[in-house]
Design a protein around this nucleic acid. Structure first.
Length: 813
RNA sequence: GCGGAUGUGGUGAAAUUGGUAUACACGCCAGACUUAGGAUCUGGUGCUUUACGGCGUGGAGGUUCGAGUCCUCUCAUCCGCACCA
């Protein structure tokens, strides 16, 4: 009987379905384990990255079930988003039809991989029932002032016809279509993630050692907390007059209050209200107004690449401490969206300010000692700084902030690089933002009892404009407050909103899905996710948003969880010929074809064996053959098993080869808990099993074979579940799969040790000694065996490592 | 520029507290069985040397009886952020 994967795999997949084998308990009695692989976007077909992601997750889930834990291992679909609309434009298919048919196809593909998902908890984020609860959260966030609508300059992707969040702009281009991002002033909805910045930052400490350190660093940098001084520059009397009395002062932020006596000019962003006023009221040369206009139309990225450029605005401010008059410029390196869009400039101690001052011949005033040339940005004592002269700059920062606070012209402040999360998208295939624009009542949320606000299905998707905006009737509604005619919001939510709370939806028992979004008791029992697995590309976007949502929903009373993902494993990409697999490069491997040719077990074994999960995985067709060969060998060796229970073995009576085989089998067993719970290096566990099989092949004791197969099938079941379950059924009535077995220490007890004898740091000979031999005996034997190398030498030092080696340090006589 | 990570055979990769470097697999070589083999099995395979031996974990130092592992410096590659005042 030869190994026939398609038959075995279909049989067990059917059986698992019939047995509902992977549903968690309804109650909370057993200890839980929540294993989650990031859910897929239903693009149409699985790719190898999915196979890797779900093979890893499934190994964890199956392992923990054996520990008698209550395992939640769900799957669902991240189903809203642009590609569905693109398919509609290209192929004339309705996004809903396209999405759900893709889901049906991909669900079948996942099934053929034999993944142990709970089937009752599956959902798609475009299900109206999911939208309903999401809209409820959004309204509650609005009530708590965590969601607001405002008009600002946003990142706009012309090819996607939508706004992008800051996090979705990669190197100045759209994260999805790679089109250059433009700036556009438009209204949108924002979530106040900055309000949670401190907690999001501080709680990264809770994740140390549980998340990859680079992800923690990336989040840390992204939040970008900096502390400093915020104060106002008062405009000079003549400047106030010039500005028609519309401005008295403006605020700046600095992290270097210690350099305040070195301020020689101040700079405003092109978008700053004062700059705008000067431009709009013809208070600057036309030429300069035009040039400022050009800067204002550049994206942040374009400005970053441009040379420093600026113009004197013909106004001055008063230095708050010295009373000096300081010129005000506009400069292209001052960001409108950070620190109030204005800076104090200290060219002596800041590289940007220095470069700008050099270009425009502005004065430079040194106030920190140290270094030979300017700008000097390191530590030093203050000079020419009035009462603060002589202090170190660290000490002076606090004192200067204190002085500003006392005098009431400024205060210590914290600023974040993080921007609030813009969640408006001008697209059809998303969750409608549940608000209404009423002429009488303004912007009002829908009534919760009217939720969900579902998408209209009769839409025409042309790629021109927002289909919800263009729909003849959908946006016309009545105001939930006054009952008069009103207009429904036509923006939909960013799809990252859906993936920010799906981990709670899975945890909520499906019986409750109709009546609640998140069940508190269920959530508190199941969350945080004990092991989360996904791509590093989500290090900031999804993982930061999901952490934020978790904290917000906690504060809204939905649960008591602080962090959604307790442990994170970021898997590496799947490569072919050193490059990322992609359709455009034509270097993809089709999972369906792979499963058809070799079976799911081989596909899974290869992906876990070829590299540790966090590293990139280089595809190799012949290594896949190798994985297949191992499974075949394992399958063939069923003939070696002679009894259906774990045998009792008398260790002392065994041959040397049989003893070694047992050692290899038990070494693999010993390794398994470390691999599943700590190192995640499945490749080494598989290698240990291969070694065990190789060692078993070198002996012929039937009991040792039986024990070896009994244990190995158990160890490998999470990785290659079909063939191991089949063999286990035939040989051991599946009894061997029920729990993790115990290591028998006596197997490792050796009668003899092989000592390596090193002389002068070099390995020379090996000697075999009884385990009971005393150190002196070992040493004497080593000297005898190594006599040849000891001739004419004096032994300086003798080191014996019990059971392992002897090292003799020598020098010539 | 700042931050993080990684450098080990022809290839993917192993290596508790510092203790026999290259496990396991791919590839390659030889052999067996075969009409045949891209099937299966067995053996070999770091470099160098006729051999003894010598040299080998990106490079250079250091600590140690002993370093892939610890310390210092350095080079290369990859990733993230990039005027955040």
């Amino acid at each position: 009987m030869s190994y026939n994967p398609s038959e075995i795999e279909a049989k067990w997949q059917q059986k698992w379905d019939d047995e509902k084998a992977f549903e968690p308990d309804d109650g909370y009695e057993r200890k839980k384990k929540y294993i989650l692989s990031m859910f897929p976007f239903p693009s149409g077909r699985l790719h190898m990255g999915h196979v890797r992601n779900y093979a890893i997750g499934d190994a964890f889930a199956r392992y923990y079930r054996k520990q008698n834990l209550n395992v939640l291992h769900p799957i669902g679909w991240d189903a809203f988003g642009m590609p569905a609309e693109n398919a509609a434009i290209k192929h004339g298919r309705h996004p809903k039809e396209w999405t759900y048919s893709n889901i049906d196809y991909m669900r079948k593909e996942l099934n053929t991989l034999g993944l142990s998902f709970s089937k009752t908890r599956e959902f798609a984020t475009c299900d109206v029932l999911y939208t309903k609860w999401e809209q409820e959260f959004i309204i509650k966030m609005f009530e708590q002032k965590l969601l607001y609508r405002e008009s600002t300059t946003v990142n706009w992707c012309e090819s996607c016809h939508t706004v992008l969040a800051n996090e979705q702009v990669e190197e100045g281009c759209c994260w999805r279509c790679d089109n250059a991002v433009q700036l556009k002033e438009m209204p949108g909805y924002y979530l106040d993630i900055i309000k949670y910045a401190d907690e999001l930052l501080g709680d990264l400490k809770l994740l140390e050692g549980k998340w990859p350190s680079q992800v923690l660093t990336m989040q840390n940098n992204w939040i970008g907390k900096s502390q400093g001084l915020e104060f106002s520059f008062e405009l000079s009397a003549s400047s106030k007059e010039k500005l028609g009395g519309h401005f008295e002062r403006y605020t700046v932020f600095t992290t270097r209050p210690d350099t305040i006596y070195g301020v020689t000019y101040s700079a405003l962003a092109a978008e700053h209200p004062i700059t705008k006023y000067l431009c709009d009221n013809a208070l600057l040369d036309e030429e300069i107004v035009a040039k400022i206009g050009v800067i204002a139309n550049m994206t942040e990225r374009e400005r970053a690449q441009a040379d420093k450029e600026g113009y004197a605005l013909g106004i001055t401010v008063i230095h708050p401490l010295t009373g000096e008059e300081i010129p005000v410029w506009t400069a292209n390196f001052v960001l409108a969206s950070y620190g109030g869009g204005a800076v104090m400039a200290v060219p002596a101690h800041d590289e940007r300010d220095f470069e700008f001052a050099s270009k425009y011949a502005l004065p430079v005033k040194r106030v920190i000692s140290g270094g030979e040339s300017l700008p000097y940005t390191l530590e030093g004592a203050l000079i020419d700084s009035a009462a603060f002269t002589g202090l170190g700059n660290y000490e002076s920062k606090a004192k200067i902030i204190g002085m500003f606070e006392e005098a009431g012209f400024g205060k210590g402040t914290t600023n974040y690089r993080l921007r609030n999360w813009g969640v408006s998208r001008q697209r059809y295939w998303g969750a409608p933002i549940p608000f209404v624009h009423c002429k009488h009542c303004g912007l009002v949320p829908e009534r919760v009892e009217n939720l969900p606000i579902a998408l209209p299905e009769d839409v025409e998707i042309t790629g021109e404009g927002n289909p919800l905006e263009n729909h003849p009737t959908w946006k016309h509604c009545t105001c939930p407050v006054c009952g008069k005619e009103a207009i429904r919001e036509t923006d939909t939510l960013d799809t990252f909103v859906q993936s920010s709370w799906y981990q709670f939806r899975y945890a909520t028992h499906p019986n409750k899905w109709n009546t609640t979004g998140i069940d508190k008791e269920d959530a508190n029992y199941w969350l945080g996710v004990d092991q989360y697995i996904g791509g590093i590309e989500h290090a900031i976007l999804h993982l930061l948003y999901a952490r934020f949502f978790t904290k917000v929903l906690r504060d809204l009373g939905y649960h008591n969880i602080d962090e959604p993902f307790e442990n994170l494993l970021t898997q590496g990409m799947v490569l072919m010929d050193g490059a990322k697999m992609s359709k455009s490069k034509g270097n993809t491997v089709d999972p369906d074809a792979l499963v058809e040719k070799y079976g799911a077990d081989t596909a899974r074994l290869f992906t876990l064996f070829a590299a540790p999960p966090a590293k990139e995985l280089e595809w190799n067709d012949s290594a896949v053959e190798g994985a297949f060969r191992f499974i075949k060998r394992l399958y063939d060796r069923q003939a070696k098993v002679t009894q259906s229970t774990l045998p009792q073995i008398e260790q002392a009576a065994l041959s040397k080869e049989s003893k070694l085989a047992r050692v290899k089998v038990y070494e693999a067993l010993q390794k398994s808990s470390d691999v599943y719970e700590k190192s995640f290096s499945f490749n080494t566990l598989i290698a240990a099993c291969m070694e065990a099989l190789n060692a078993l092949d070198k002996q012929d004791n039937a009991l040792v074979w039986t024990e070896g197969m009994y244990i190995m099938l158990n160890l490998l079941e999470p990785i290659i579940p079909h063939v191991t379950t089949e063999l286990s059924e035939v040989l051991f009535a599946r009894k061997n799969l029920q729990r993790i077995l115990e290591v028998k220490e006596e197997v490792f007890v050796q009668e003899n040790f092989v000592y390596v004898v090193m002389i002068g740091g070099k390995k020379r000979v090996e000697i075999e000694m009884a385990a009971s031999a005393a150190q002196e005996e070992v040493l004497a034997a080593a000297k005898e065996a190594g006599a040849k190398w000891l001739e004419g030498m004096t032994i300086l030092k003798e080191v014996v490592v019990p059971g392992k080696l002897v090292n003799l340090a020598v020098k010539p006589n």
